[in-house]
Simulated scan of single mutants.
Amino acid sequence: MRPNVLLKTLRDQARGLAAWSVSLALIVAMYAAVWPSIRGQPSMSDFIDQMPEAFRSMFATTGADMSTPTGYIQIELLSFMGPIAVLIYAVGTGAGAIGGEEDRHTMDLLLSNPVGRWRVVLEKFLAMAAGTFLLAVVTGAALVLEGRLVELDLPADKVAATMLHLALLGVVFGTLALALSAATGRTGLSRGIPAALAVLAYIVNALAPLVDVFDRLQKLSPFYQYIDHDPLRTGIAWDSVLVSVATIAVLAGAAVVGFRRRDIPA
Score class of each variant (00 low, 15 high):
240 S>T: 00
225 Q>Y: 04
194 P>I: 10
168 L>F: 09
191 R>F: 12
261 R>Q: 15
150 V>C: 06
60 A>Y: 03
144 V>Y: 04
250 V>C: 01
51 M>S: 06
32 A>Q: 07
212 D>P: 00
196 A>G: 12
101 E>C: 07
62 T>F: 10
196 A>H: 03
122 L>Q: 09
225 Q>N: 06
109 L>R: 11
87 L>H: 13
264 I>V: 15
167 A>N: 00
180 L>A: 07
6 L>P: 04
70 T>P: 05
59 F>I: 11
258 G>H: 09
85 A>K: 09
257 V>F: 09
206 A>N: 09
48 I>Y: 09
231 P>G: 09
188 G>N: 11
258 G>W: 09
203 I>Q: 01
182 A>S: 13
213 V>L: 14
185 G>C: 11
9 T>F: 01
88 I>R: 03
188 G>H: 04
155 P>Q: 08
266 A>Y: 09
103 D>F: 05
62 T>A: 15
54 A>P: 00
218 Q>F: 00
84 I>Q: 14
66 M>T: 11
76 E>V: 08
202 Y>T: 10
71 G>F: 04
13 Q>V: 00
89 Y>A: 08
245 V>T: 07
149 L>I: 13
242 L>Q: 01
68 T>Q: 13
60 A>C: 11
58 M>D: 02
219 K>T: 10
10 L>G: 02
4 N>G: 08
136 A>S: 14
26 L>M: 14
113 N>V: 00
105 H>W: 04
87 L>E: 13
258 G>T: 09
241 V>A: 05
103 D>E: 15
137 V>E: 03
226 Y>K: 05
246 A>H: 04
183 A>L: 08
83 P>R: 07
264 I>Y: 00
172 V>I: 14
214 F>W: 09
28 V>W: 04
159 V>S: 02
245 V>S: 06
132 T>M: 02
185 G>A: 11
36 P>T: 11
185 G>H: 12
10 L>S: 05
131 G>A: 02
255 A>G: 07
16 G>R: 14
177 A>T: 02
20 W>G: 01
197 L>E: 12
7 L>K: 08
139 T>I: 08
143 L>W: 10
26 L>N: 02
23 S>C: 12
193 I>M: 08
165 H>E: 03
250 V>F: 05
